[in-house]
Simulated scan of single mutants.
Amino acid sequence: MSIYVYQIFVIKQDKFKEAIENLKAIQKFRNEQYDHTVEILSPITGADHTYALLTKYEGLAEMELQDKKMFDDENYLKLIGDFFLQHIAEGSMNTQIFRSLNEIKNS
Rank of each mutant, 00 (worst) to 15 (best):
I40D: 03
L79P: 02
I26C: 02
T95N: 11
G59Y: 03
M93R: 15
H49Y: 12
I40N: 00
S42F: 12
I97W: 05
V38E: 06
S92F: 10
S92C: 04
E18L: 06
D72Q: 09
Y51R: 05
K28R: 10
Q96Y: 15
I26L: 10
A25F: 06
E62V: 14
I20T: 03
G46W: 08
I40C: 03
V38I: 11
G46Y: 14
L65R: 15
I88M: 11
D48A: 14
M93V: 15
I44D: 10
L77F: 02
K68Q: 10
S92L: 01
K78G: 00
M93D: 12
K17V: 05
Q66L: 09
K69G: 06
L23S: 12
T37Q: 03
T55K: 08
K17N: 12
L79N: 12
D67N: 11
N75Q: 14
L65F: 07
M63T: 08
G59Q: 04
A61C: 01
H87W: 02
Y57K: 10
M70F: 06
I40M: 03
Q66H: 09
I44F: 14
I80M: 04
I26E: 06
S42Q: 13
F29C: 10
L77P: 00
F29A: 09
A47V: 09
K56Y: 00
E21Y: 07
S92H: 14
A52V: 08
Q27F: 03
E58R: 13
E32G: 03
K28P: 04
E18D: 11
M70V: 03
K69A: 14
G59W: 02
R30V: 04
E58Y: 04
D67L: 07
E90T: 15
E64H: 10
L77G: 02
T37D: 02
Y76L: 04
D72T: 14
S92Q: 10
R30T: 06
Y51K: 12
G81S: 01
D48K: 15
A47Y: 08
H87M: 13
L41E: 07
T50Q: 10
F98N: 08
L41W: 09
L23N: 01
E74I: 06
D35G: 08
K68S: 07
I44E: 00
H36M: 02
D67F: 13
A25M: 03
D48V: 11
E21S: 05
I80Q: 07
A52P: 00
A19E: 01
H36F: 01
P43G: 11
Q33S: 13
L54T: 11
K24E: 09
T50Y: 02
K28E: 14
L65V: 08
L85F: 10
E64W: 12
K69T: 03
Y51S: 04
E32C: 05
Y57F: 13
D35E: 01
A25G: 04
A25P: 02
Y51A: 03
I26A: 05
L53A: 07
D73F: 02
M70R: 13
I44T: 15
M63K: 14
A19D: 05
E39I: 09
E39G: 12
K56V: 01
E64K: 15
R30W: 01
T95Y: 09
Q33T: 10
Q33W: 05
K15Y: 00
